[in-house]
Amino acid sequence: MATRPAHGEEAAPLSNPAGKDGPLDPASQEGRARLQALIAESLGAKVELVGVEALSGGASSATYALSATLDGAPRQFIFQRAAGSGFGLSRRIQAEVMRRAGRLKVPVPPVIAIPKDADGLGDAVITGFMPGEALAPRWLRLESFAGARERLVTQCAEALARLHAAPLSTWADLPLGAGSGAELLESSFANYRRLGVDVPAFDLAFAWLKPRMPTDPPTSLVHGDFRSGNFLVSEAGLSAVLDWELPHLSSPAEDLGWLCVQAWRFGRWQWPVGGFATREALLQAYRAAGGKVTAEELHLWEVYGNLKWGMSCLMLADDHVSGRVPSVERAAIGRRVSEVAADLVYILAFRDL
C-alpha cells in the first residue's frame, strides 16, 4: 500500500463536490480532471485517471489513492491534502522538504505535482505510489517482515544521518521553526501552563529537563515525527519515510530520542527503538553512518520525547473539551496522559523504559 491510516486518526470526510464551500472533491468529475491534468503536465505524458479511492486521514490530512494509465501503462499515485486543522507545515512546504530530502538519498515518496490555488484542490500534494506496509503493528509482528526488522535500524540510522548532515543553508529559504533544546522545552512548558492542568509526573519531567536541555543553537533539520507508524516497510526494509508535517531546525538527537518513545513500540516494549531494535544498535548504526549522538544525549531526548508525546495527548484532549475540534478520537488519545505519566516516572527513576 502507498499510505496508511495515521496513528489513531479517523477517516476525514470528503469535501464539497462542487468546490463551492471548500476544495474540490478529488473524486468529482472536475476534481479528477484537474488531477489528471496536473499529473500529465508534470510527467509530460498522456495520463488517464481511472480511479480515485479515499483512504484515510484525520484532523491533519485526507489521503486518496489514484489509479491511472500513463502512456497506456498502469500507474498509481497518492493525493494528500490538509484537512483544515492548521497542524504542522502546509502540504506545499512539506513537498519541498521531501524533494530536498530525496536529493539527500533519504527514502521519500517522489513528489509528482503541487497544486496551485487556482487548481481548487486545496493545500495538497501528489506523490508517487511506494510499496510497503505502513501499519506498524503488522510489520512489527508478522513473520514475513522478520528480515526487514533486522535491517531497519541500520536503514533508519542512515536516513537520519543523511538528513542531519545537510547544512542549514539547504533549508534557509523555507519557513521552518527552530530552537535550542532549552527553547523547545520553554515553549512546551508555556503550553502546559496555558492548558491550566496539573500532572505531577509532567511537572517532575519539566523540572528534570530544565537544567539539562542544551542551549546551543540548532545544527540540523530534524524530521520531527520519525517513528514507527510513519514508515513504509517492505520485506526488504525501509521503503519510505512519511508524514513530513513537523520538520524544524534542532539537534539530531531529537529525532533519535523520539524514535525511542514508548508509544511507538506498539506493545513490543522489549525493543526500545520503535519496537524493533536496541538503543545501542541505533547509536552504533547512526555513528557508522557519520552521525554523532552520545548515549547521554539519547537519554535526555528520549525523556523529552515522552514528555512531548504527553503534551500532544493533553493538547488533543483540550481540542475536544474546548469544543474547537469535537472528536472522540482526540478525547481517546487524551486519556493516554496517564500512560505517559507512568512512563516518565519510570524512565526518570530507572534510566530505562
Rank of each mutant, 00 (worst) to 15 (best):
E48T: 15
P13M: 03
R32H: 10
R268N: 09
S90W: 06
G102V: 07
W264N: 00
R193Q: 15
F350M: 14
L298P: 01
S61M: 11
E158Q: 13
L160K: 02
L209V: 10
V325W: 11
F266G: 00
L135P: 01
S42A: 15
L43E: 15
R336P: 02
K308R: 15
P272D: 03
S234G: 15
I78V: 15
A253V: 05
L152F: 02
V153K: 00
G179W: 07
A18K: 12
A332Q: 15
K210F: 11
T69L: 11
E183M: 12
S180Y: 05
L314M: 10
D117I: 12
Y64R: 00
A349V: 08
D123N: 08
A83Q: 08
T63R: 08
L66T: 04
K292W: 14
E9F: 02
T170C: 14
T3E: 13
D203N: 12
Q262S: 10
A2H: 09
P110W: 09
D173N: 13
L307R: 01
R227Y: 04
H223I: 04
F145T: 00
L298A: 06
Q29P: 10
P326F: 09
V321T: 14
A342R: 14
R81I: 04
F77Y: 13
H320M: 04
Q76Y: 08
R141V: 13
P167D: 09
V153R: 00
L209R: 05
L259W: 02
R99N: 11
E254C: 08
A118E: 15
A281M: 09
G8S: 12
T294V: 12
R92S: 07
N230E: 06
A65R: 13
T278M: 11
A12W: 05
L38S: 01
A166I: 09
M315P: 04
P175D: 13
L283G: 01
E53V: 11
S42L: 10
E9N: 04
D343W: 05
G237S: 06
T170D: 14
V303Q: 05
L256G: 01
D243I: 04
D203K: 14
R4N: 14
H7D: 13
